[in-house]
Design a binder for these strands. Structure first.
Ligand SMILES: [Zn+2]
Ligand SMILES: [Zn+2]
Ligand SMILES: [Zn+2]
Ligand SMILES: [Zn+2]
Lengths: 138, 138
DNA sequence: GGCATTATGTTATGACATTACAAGTTTGAG
DNA sequence: CTCAAACTTGTAATGTCATAACATAATGCC
C-alpha cells in the first residue's frame, strides 16, 4: 500500500491517524485524555493508545506538546521546521495557540550554550497571555 | 518579631520557610511530593501544604517552576530579576539547572508580541540537554 | 470582645502518564 | 509456504502530579 500522502518518513497507523485528525480539528490544545474521549466511538479505550500515537507524532514533528499545559496541538507548519526552535504563544482566554520561530532568539540561545559548553537537545518556549482579540475584548 | 532577613516583601511562614530550605539544599529540581517526603519529620503530611507554600514562593520570586519537569527549584539570583524573562538550562544527566536571562531574547519576544497584539503574562523557556561536565563525560 | 483576614490541617478526588503483560500483524529469510 | 523476529495494538493496574472542599487556628484591626 502506501500511496500519495508522504507525511514524513512513512504512513501513519490507524491510531496515529485518528489522534492527528482529532488534533487538527481542535481549535485549542487537547489533553491526551480528552483526545481519548473523542475517540471512544472509534474504538479507543485506554490512555496508552493515545500516548503511543502522540509519541510517534511528536517524533515525526506532526504534533507538539505544550509543557505548560500538559496538552498537545497539531503542528501548524508541517513543512518548515528547519529553524529547530519553535515558540508558542498561548491565549489563556480563548485557548488559541500561535506557533512561530525566531532565528535571532535561536542564535542567542545557541551562543549561550556554546559559551557554557551546554549541549542542547530540545528547547521549549511558551508565552502565556492574551491574544489580540481577547486582549481588546477585555 | 521579624528581625533581619527581609527576603522580599515580608517574612516567610513556617511552611514556606521549610519548603524553601528544602529547595535550597537540593542539587536538582524537586517535585512537590519529594519535598513533602523530606518534610514529613517536620510535621508536614499533605501535598497541599507544600503546594500552598510553593505558590507563595513563586509569587515572591524565591522559587521557580520548571514546566517541562513538573518540578521546582529555588531561585538562583533572588536579587536581580529585573529582566522579566528567565531561561533555564536543565541537564538531563545530572539534574543541574542553570538560570539565566538574555535581554536580546526578551526584546525579540516583546517585539513579536507587539506586532501580534499579544499581551504577555508569563514566559517559560527551558533548554534540555547536557551540561559541560556531563557532555564531556559522555 | 467581635469580626475580617490569612494561614493551616485533613480527606477525598481529579488529572496526567507509565509499567507490565498479552495478543495480533507484518515481513522476510529459509 | 512456514516460521520467527520485529513491530504494533489492546488491556488492566499503577504511579505521579495537582486541586476541591471543608474544618480549624492564628493574627490583626475596630
Ligand atoms: Zn510545528
Ligand atoms: Zn484569545
Ligand atoms: Zn530566579
Ligand atoms: Zn550534567
Amino acid at each position: 500500500m502506501s500511496s500519495a500522502r508522504a507525511t514524513s518518513a512513512r504512513d501513519l497507523t490507524r491510531n496515529q491517524h485518528l489522534v492527528l485528525g482529532t488534533l487538527e480539528k481542535a481549535e485549542s490544545p487537547l489533553s491526551a485524555y480528552s483526545i481519548l474521549d473523542q475517540l471512544r466511538e472509534e474504538g479507543l479505550r485506554a490512555p496508552l493508545q493515545v500516548y503511543r500515537a502522540l509519541d510517534k507524532l511528536l517524533e515525526m514533528g506532526l504534533a507538539h506538546r505544550l509543557e505548560s499545559l500538559n496538552a498537545f496541538v497539531a503542528c501548524a507548519h508541517p513543512h518548515c521546521h528547519k529553524s529547530g526552535l519553535i515558540a508558542f504563544a498561548i491565549c489563556e482566554s480563548c485557548g488559541q495557540v500561535s506557533e512561530f520561530s525566531d532565528d535571532v532568539v535561536r542564535q542567542r540561545l545557541d551562543d549561550w550554550a556554546a559559551r557554557e559548553g551546554f549541549v542542547t537537545k530540545r528547547t521549549t518556549m511558551e508565552i502565556r497571555g492574551a491574544c489580540r482579540a481577547c486582549a481588546s475584548a477585555a
